[in-house]
Amino acid sequence: MTHYLILRVIAKLMVGPIMLFALYVQFHGDFGPGGGFQAGVIFAAALILYGLVFDLTALRRFASLELLCSVMALGWLLYVGVGFATMLLGGRFLDYDFLAADPVAGQHIGILLIELGVGITVAATMLIIFEVYAGRKIATEGEDDA
């Protein structure tokens, strides 16, 4: 799809704002609708748009499957890590009250961190599923040529 000029220009213009919106949904989820799940999907959608309009290889240049695997695990580890951090600080698993001196502030920090973990894992997983599906197509086409 590399020769459709309008698509390429519009897509390039859209990717940035979509990512920005994803970050807004991510960090504003405590106050409005949204949160890690939605933000992760929107962030992945921005990169999937890039991968659809430009090439999958262009997407994989900065979001390779190995990197995404690590990032996917990292998000979940961040979530579990917050849980263990609260245990180390004297609370129960995922008891955010102990993350700061003030329980309410601790809750804010905890929710922010675990939502970030959710967002990271969701975005990476969506990208992995997309890349694997789309990459399979390229692989099958390639072997027809061979």
Binding site: G29, D30, H108, T125
Partner: peptide, 29 residues
């Protein structure tokens, strides 16, 4: 101290459930 009850329930009160949900997504990947 959050205005969004959905986020409070999802991330704090039922935080362990959400951990499992993220685990499901991780497993899917």
């Amino acid at each position: 101290g959050l205005p969004n009850i959905v986020t409070a329930v999802l991330a704090s009160y039922r935080g362990f459930d959400t951990l499992g949900e993220v685990g499901v997504i991780f497993t899917a990947g």
